[in-house]
Structures are given as C-alpha cells and as structure tokens.
Amino acid sequence: MSGPPGGKIDWLWKQVESARADDNREAVRECLERLLADPSVRDTSDEDLALINLSQLDLEEGRSREAALRLSDFRWHGVPGPAGLLLLADVYLKLEWFGQARDELEEYLELIPEDLDARRKLGLVQLMLNEDDAAQRILLATARREKNRVPETLTYLAMLEAKAGRLEESLHLLLQARELAPLDEKIEHTLLRIESLRVSLKRRALHQEDLPLEDLVPGMTGGMLELHGYSREKARQAMEAWNRFCSVQRPAGRKPAIWAAALEYSVTRFGPHFTQKQLADEYGVSTTQLGEHYHTIAQAVDLDSIVKEDLLGETERAGHGLRDLVRREEMAEVIASATGRLEEFRGPGEMCAWVFGRIDPLNEAERREIEDFVGYLWKRKSNPAK
C-alpha cells in the first residue's frame, strides 16, 4: 500500500478492527505485527497500543510468557487516553501484575471517576495487594451504587470477609452472588483464590442446607447491614437480639433470608432504616413473610433494651455516617473529575466555580476546605516539581 505513513497506519488499524469483528486472530496478529514493524510508529502512541493489543491477543491464545516479555519494560510514549489505560490495566490484571494494574486503573479513574466496572476492578486489585481497607471502601461504595445486584462485586467483598475470618458474612455474600449468576465460572474462580479457605467455603456455599438456620441468619444479617452502610455496632445488636431469640425459641422454616430480613428490620426500625418492603426486596422475600417473622422476634425478645440504649446518639451517629459517606463519595467524584480537566481552567477561581456548580457546600467551612484543596491542586499544576 502506498501513500503517506499516517494513511497506512490508519488503514492497518481499520484492518485490525475488521479482523477482530470477524474473529480472525491470525489476521489481527499479522496487522499488529505490521504496525510494529513500521518505522513511523516507533516511540509513538500507535506503538504503545499495538504492543498492548498484541499482548492481549497473546493472553487470549494462552501465550502468557510472550505477553509478559512484551510488556516487561513497557513505558507510555506521551499521555495515554482513557481507553488505552483501561486496556493496559486489563492486560496487567490477566498477567496478575497487580501493582501495575492498580497504577493504570487509578490514572484511568482520575479521568473517568464514574466507571463502576473500573472501580470494581480496582477493588479486586487492592484485595490482591492486601490493601484490604482501601479495597473494602471502594467495593462497598460500588456495591451500594449497583444496589447489590452485580455478582462480581459481591464475590470480591466475600473474599475480603473470608480474609478477615468472617466466614458467615462471606458465605452469605457468595450465596447472593451465586443466585444472581448461578452459571458464572468467574465466581467459582474467585472462590478458588481464597487459598486456605477455598475448600470449606466452596463446600458450604454449595450446600446451604447443611448449615443450621441458627448459625446462618446472623451472618447474613451482618453482611447486609454492612452493605447497607451501618456500623459494626448495629451488627453486634443484631447478633445479641438473635442469640436472645434462639435461647427462648427455635426458629422455624428453612429459608434463612426471611429471618435475616426480619432481624435487620428489628434492629434498624427506629431509623435510619429501610421500609419493610425495601428490605424484603433486598433479601428476595415477601413483605408479609418479613412482617410475620419480625413480630415473632419482637414477641420473644425485648428489642427496646437492645436497640434503645443510647438511641438518640446511635441514630445520630448512624444517620450522619450514612449521609457523610454519600457526601464524601459525591465530593470525591466531582473533584476527581475537575482534576482531570485542569488544563481547561484558566485559574483556581474558575475551577472552584466549576466544582461549586456541581456540588453545593453545606457550610462556609466546607466551602473553604474545597477552595483550599483546589488551590493546592492548582499550585501543583503550576509547580509540578514541588
């Protein structure tokens, strides 16, 4: 093919896309190798993307050693775009180069902070790097935004619970994930990654009926309370209420989710809380069943003596905790988005106006805090060496 180098390179990329659409891996590899062989792409973003795409193809064909060799000393030429960052993060993740994957994902999320899929991947990477606190924060926030309906996020949270020794909570999360995607092999694969616990967890997840109802319910409730944003103190109250109930009455039935939903309502009904219908939907049970089981618990246990201790303080702390968590997430997203657009602003004042146009400060102290942070970011932009 003759013509200017740029025209040839564009044509080769179109051939790559066409071959991928036809699932013709041999043609994809040939076009990528021709791209890399062209002198005009050396030390350019085209060379970067061709290397990453070729490494991705190596991994798809089981050639992980070749992919690792290609990327062993990889460095970006110029400033990468979001698509390139995410593609490289995926390749690093498949190679289990978790440190490199984390770096690419963090840079990507500075540009596209609302991408929940990328946030989930970052949580997994942090989990693999034993950065458990950071992983828990991002995965819990992601699960709430997904309304606990994405099995991968629940599975990663289950792995965190297992690492912390909270097997009942881990079991409930895994069961939730399996109900959402019973044929998803990735869930089974992540179960296998919990090294010393994988055999017992997998057996218990596959044989829910082998577990006593009394043992399963508090773990299910504790896991859901955490997903709903409550503190561990609330889970402790649920455990105490359940133990008192089981000491005077044996729970009937074979569906632990009904008792778990009723138990959560028992310890959160004074607020802030979900309605019975909302909780029933969360646990996958009927509102009638939840109400009946709640009344059974309430008749057998003095819930007021458990929950109303320092009720005003507990309600205030829980309410502020839930609101503050949402508030922090909103502020972080707006500021991260603004940081990715630094070059578009003419000064810190314009940047502050952009931020305040998307999130209203609650008070003057918060306004000053945001202004100070924007000033710091602008100073770093103007004096990168500092």
Rank of each mutant, 00 (worst) to 15 (best):
Q100V: 01
L109A: 03
R119L: 11
R144C: 03
F98W: 15
T142M: 04
M128G: 12
E131T: 04
K147Y: 10
T142I: 03
K147T: 11
L86H: 13
N130R: 14
D90L: 11
L88V: 07
G99I: 00
P151V: 05
P113E: 05
F98Q: 05
L140G: 02
P151Q: 02
D90T: 10
K94E: 14
R137T: 03
Q136P: 03
E107V: 09
I112N: 11
L129G: 04
Y108D: 02
Q126K: 06
E114Y: 12
D117S: 13
A135R: 01
L124I: 09
R102P: 02
A135N: 00
D103K: 08
R144V: 03
L109R: 01
D103H: 08
L127Y: 15
D103L: 08
F98G: 06
G123V: 04
L109D: 01
I138Q: 02
N148Y: 12
A135W: 00
L109I: 01
I112Q: 13
V125A: 10
A101Q: 06
P113G: 02
Y108W: 01
Q126T: 02
R102V: 01
E106D: 05
Q136W: 06
A89H: 07
N148A: 14
R120H: 12
R120N: 14
I138C: 06
E110K: 12
N148K: 10
V150S: 09
E104N: 12
P113I: 01
K94Y: 09
D132A: 05
E106K: 07
L127E: 08
E114A: 12
A134L: 11
L105S: 02
N130Y: 08
I138N: 04
K94S: 12
A101S: 12
Y92R: 14
A141K: 09
L129F: 03
L124W: 15
E96W: 02
L122Y: 04
Y108E: 01
A134P: 04
L129P: 05
E131M: 07
G99D: 02
A101L: 05
E106T: 07
D103F: 01
R149K: 15
L87Q: 14
L124Q: 13
Y92Q: 12
I112P: 03
L111T: 07
L87G: 10
F98H: 12
A135S: 14
A89P: 06
L124T: 09
G123H: 03
D90N: 14
P113F: 05
L95Y: 07
L109C: 01
T142A: 10
P151W: 08
R120P: 07
R137M: 03
E110A: 11
L87R: 15
L124F: 15
D117H: 13
E106A: 07
V150K: 13
V150P: 00
G123K: 04
L116G: 08
V91G: 07
V125C: 06
A118Y: 04
L140C: 06
R102A: 11
E107M: 08
V150R: 14
Y92M: 10
A134F: 02
N130P: 00
N148P: 01
I112W: 05
E114N: 11
D90A: 13
D103V: 09
L105K: 00
E131R: 13
L109H: 03
E131I: 01
L124S: 09
A141G: 12
V91L: 07
L139W: 04
R102L: 03
K147M: 11
P113W: 00
D117Y: 11
